[in-house]
């Protein structure tokens, strides 16, 4: 099974040092995935691998043989924006837009984690169904930095799409 990116088969790099991030940006010219630190501290490089969010700067491309990578370029359905992309625009969940692809990919991965019932540091009752309130969301999204300070808009956009009563259907679907 080869590595696929947004559904397309992609050859692995010869150089084992090449990160998944550099493969995406430099080789495939999928520069929607951003780079803010190259050390796992900012979340700008977040992509989805088989539906789970990872920071691609800390991933060696050769390790992802056989895995399906989805980047921000693969989130929309053709001309139709993903509901979360549309919500980011509506709620002004960005200014410069540089952290945005990472925030969006991370939020999609987070919703999936929530759908699987994964608790977080702020979850009170580990046995109960986790509800995505603002605190759960902020905790789970804190690995994605935004220096422009679009945090309120980001939270509003994510709650709009994955907030209480929406998580179950969305994620189960």
């Amino acid at each position: 099974m080869p590595l696929t990116v947004n559904g397309a088969t992609v050859p692995l790099p010869d150089d084992p040092r090449v990160s998944l991030l550099d493969l995406l940006r430099d080789t495939l010219h999928l520069s929607g995935t951003k780079i803010g630190c190259n050390q796992g501290a900012c979340g700008a490089c977040t992509v989805l691998v088989d539906g789970e969010r990872i920071v691609s700067c800390l991933a060696l491309a050769v390790q992802y043989d056989g895995r399906a990578v989805t980047t921000i370029e693969g989130i929309a359905d053709g001309e139709t924006l993903h509901p979360l992309q549309a919500a980011f625009i509506e709620h002004d969940g960005f200014q410069c837009g540089y952290c945005t692809p990472g925030q969006i990919c991370s939020a999609i991965g987070m919703a999936a984690e929530l759908g699987r019932g994964m608790p977080s540091h702020v979850t009170g009752d580990l046995a109960a169904t986790v509800v995505l309130d603002a605190d759960e969301l902020r905790e789970r999204m804190s690995g994605n930095l935004c220096r422009c300070g679009a945090h309120n808009g980001i939270v509003a956009a994510i709650l709009d799409v994955y907030g209480p009563a929406k998580v179950d259907q969305e994620v189960a679907a």
Binding site: L30, S31, G32, T33, T71, I72, E73, I75, A76, L81, Q85, A86, F88, I89, F94, G97, T100, P101, I104
Partner: peptide, 9 residues
């Protein structure tokens, strides 16, 4: 410029 930013293009 919202759409190009959220699409990563």
């Amino acid at each position: 410029d919202g759409a190009v930013k959220v699409r990563g293009v």
